[in-house]
Amino acid sequence: MKIASWNVNSLNVRLPHLEQWLATSSPDIVALQETKLEDEKFPDDPLIAMGYRSVFAGQKTYNGVAVLSRERATDVQIGVPGFEDEQKRVLAATVGDLRIVNLYVVNGQSVGSDKYAYKLRWLDAVHDWLAQELVTHPRMIVLGDFNIAPDDRDVHDPVVWNDGHILTSRAERDALQRLYSLGLHDAYRALNPEESQFSWWDYRQGGFRRNLGLRIDLTLVSEALRPHTAASGIDREPRTWDRPSDHAPAWVELK
């Protein structure tokens, strides 16, 4: 079974890319972030025609998350219970015997800003919620755009992307480690301990052409799924297409 995550950076713009990628890669489950669509505008029909059912939580212009699956999803949760937030960043659903948690983590703007403080509070709330979810759903995959590069192997230049920089600050990385401590494992890093592949490249300054990227799109598998994790990677090809998202799909295969 192949499960993927992709920040499409506007599904309205990137729907043809998504359709092309679904046709060629044939994932069983896909978590999307930054759909940037109100729910009534979600392109349900063309995705059904391709064999995918969708659950989604969107808003105009910003944020928005969705889960596409060949098998109908159930037990859908939108947002983090008990955490007041109008931004559509969290969507959990059960597909078969898997609990899928789709996260579009707060960017944080800059270290020390109000948005940075909000990001850390948000991550604390996610941690506490996932701790409870794992008790009920031990076969869990937490995936999405984490807006955190786990360590220096996941940045093109550790001097630039240092402990004082947004997306690589110590507090952000510590928050990610707290999620790992719940029994979640970075599938890509577990299977590719020495490789440095990226999932995001800035549109500016020839970021993709020069491979000035970060790996911030993660697929985390629970302890129960770790023995079943067969492969994990990042598909760079969609980033080469015309008018691409600035992110590439990250994926994991379970046996």
Rank of each mutant, 00 (worst) to 15 (best):
62 Y>N: 13
64 G>I: 04
65 V>T: 06
65 V>W: 05
68 L>T: 07
70 R>A: 13
72 R>M: 15
72 R>H: 12
72 R>I: 08
73 A>C: 04
73 A>E: 12
76 V>W: 12
76 V>F: 07
76 V>D: 11
76 V>C: 10
77 Q>S: 04
78 I>P: 00
79 G>Y: 01
79 G>D: 02
81 P>I: 10
81 P>A: 12
81 P>L: 01
85 D>K: 13
85 D>T: 07
86 E>D: 11
87 Q>D: 09
87 Q>T: 09
88 K>I: 00
88 K>Q: 13
88 K>H: 15
88 K>R: 14
91 L>A: 04
94 T>I: 05
97 D>V: 00
97 D>M: 04
97 D>H: 02
97 D>R: 05
99 R>C: 02
100 I>E: 11
100 I>L: 08
100 I>R: 07
102 N>Q: 07
102 N>C: 06
104 Y>F: 09
104 Y>T: 06
106 V>K: 12
106 V>C: 10
106 V>W: 01
107 N>M: 10
107 N>Y: 15
108 G>D: 10
109 Q>H: 12
109 Q>A: 09
109 Q>W: 06
109 Q>Y: 01
110 S>H: 11
112 G>N: 14
112 G>Q: 15
113 S>F: 12
113 S>P: 08
114 D>T: 15
116 Y>A: 10
116 Y>M: 06
119 K>D: 06
119 K>A: 04
122 W>K: 03
124 D>T: 09
125 A>N: 02
126 V>K: 14
128 D>V: 07
131 A>Q: 14
132 Q>P: 00
133 E>T: 14
135 V>A: 06
135 V>P: 00
137 H>Y: 14
138 P>G: 12
139 R>I: 04
140 M>A: 13
141 I>D: 00
145 D>K: 00
146 F>H: 12
146 F>N: 09
147 N>P: 01
147 N>I: 00
147 N>H: 03
148 I>A: 02
150 P>W: 09
156 H>F: 15
156 H>R: 03
159 V>A: 14
160 V>S: 14
160 V>H: 14
160 V>Y: 13
161 W>R: 11
161 W>Q: 11
163 D>E: 14
165 H>I: 00
166 I>A: 15
166 I>L: 12
166 I>D: 06
170 R>L: 13
172 E>A: 04
173 R>L: 06
174 D>K: 06
174 D>G: 04
175 A>E: 02
175 A>D: 10
175 A>V: 04
176 L>D: 11
176 L>V: 09
179 L>V: 13
179 L>C: 15
185 H>I: 14
186 D>I: 05
186 D>M: 09
187 A>R: 02
188 Y>D: 03
188 Y>F: 15
189 R>N: 02
190 A>H: 13
191 L>R: 09
192 N>C: 09
192 N>D: 03
192 N>V: 05
193 P>G: 05
193 P>V: 11
194 E>M: 11
194 E>L: 08
196 S>F: 02
196 S>N: 08
198 F>S: 06
199 S>M: 08
199 S>N: 05
200 W>F: 15
201 W>I: 05
203 Y>M: 12
